[in-house]
Design a protein around this nucleic acid. Structure first.
Lengths: 178, 178
DNA sequence: GTTCGACATGTCAATAGTGACATGTCGACA
DNA sequence: TGTCGACATGTCACTATTGACATGTCGAAC
């Protein structure tokens, strides 16, 4: 399961509690790569601990458990990351699905939707650009976030470019009365 | 559930049997947008028929059932496509996850992985470019496929650009003995 | 005439993931 | 001191999805 590798990957960078990991998934990681809520994260951590891929290093206030990756976990993670791209890699993206189904709409609706996509993606790309250039906040996982942010920015830019191009491919719009 | 909209979207373009729909998911649709196998498609079609969003128009050889979308189904699909981008849109992409976890690897491994990604994405983009320019095969759903192919091509190109950029961000490589 | 591969649909058990619910702690502020 | 919000973990029922298994048909090639 990919979730287990996501957790191993996060813990490989720095030890963290289930709660902190959960919040990690609320950011770019969950937005672009893999979603998960605490209800899947906590049981998964327990399973990983059972397989000795992670272990609890510290129990803090409010029952917080800090997990760290074990050498075996690191091994497992590295093998997965370097494994040749599996054919059955799982993909599921609702926004992309919408774009694929575009031709199910009437041309006028297509135009509306593409225009909206073009606007949103341009705004999102610009925002990420700003965030990255204002300051690369030197908090924990800063390097991690920089690559991810740039990835996101390029994705938005690509979709923006596509939407603009797709608009030109649409049958010429009926000259409305305005 | 997104699968139901994917099916409605496909049927809105042209009537099809469960088998034909299944093969649709083996192409770009399943590769970039939403995965599904026949074991989820057949039951889902039955459910949609129960809600009168699709109906069987024809029973052909080998028990094949041709489904078509109903006006109610078209309505439902249009509403979903034009609905403002839902916050909770589901995202799950194993390849992207690998990229997010890059910093869990040692620099040497990172370089290997990024180089491999750069190569694969360049090849994939070139292949899509070729396919699109050789002939836009005028089979059914040709227009559908063109937009999707261009989308895929731009995605690959964006990831390629990112991988090349990311390589420049890596700490300068140790001068190996070669 | 038979055999094989693509066509075509399905069930069922197991796994993965979500949402609702439940519980309790710690620090800050009024 | 009490109350509220963020911290922190968990269960459980339900839904979605997958993989293994099962069944049968049609056309073509041998």
């Amino acid at each position: 399961m990919s979730l287990s590798y996501a957790l191993l990957g996060l813990l490989a960078v720095a030890p963290a509690s289930g709660y902190e990991l959960t919040r990690e998934f609320e950011g770019d990681l969950g937005r672009y790569a893999w979603q998960a809520g605490h209800t899947s994260i906590y049981p998964e951590l327990a399973k990983l601990a059972g397989r000795d891929l992670v272990h609890v290093t510290h129990e803090g206030a409010r029952g917080a458990k800090t997990y760290d990756i074990t050498p075996a976990g690191r091994e497992e993670l590295r093998a997965w990351l370097l494994r040749p791209p599996s054919e059955g890699a799982s993909v599921r993206n609702e926004q992309v699905l919408r774009m694929f189904l575009l031709s199910a709409l009437e041309p006028a609706d297509q135009r509306v939707l593409l225009t909206r996509i073009a606007e949103r993606t341009a705004a999102a790309a610009a925002e990420l650009h700003d965030v990255m250039h204002r300051e690369h906040g030197d908090g924990p996982r800063a390097g991690f976030g920089l690559l991810a942010a740039e990835y996101g920015r390029r994705q938005y830019e690509a979709v923006h470019g596509w939407a603009v191009w797709a608009l030109t491919q649409l049958p010429a719009q009926e000259s409305a009365h305005t």
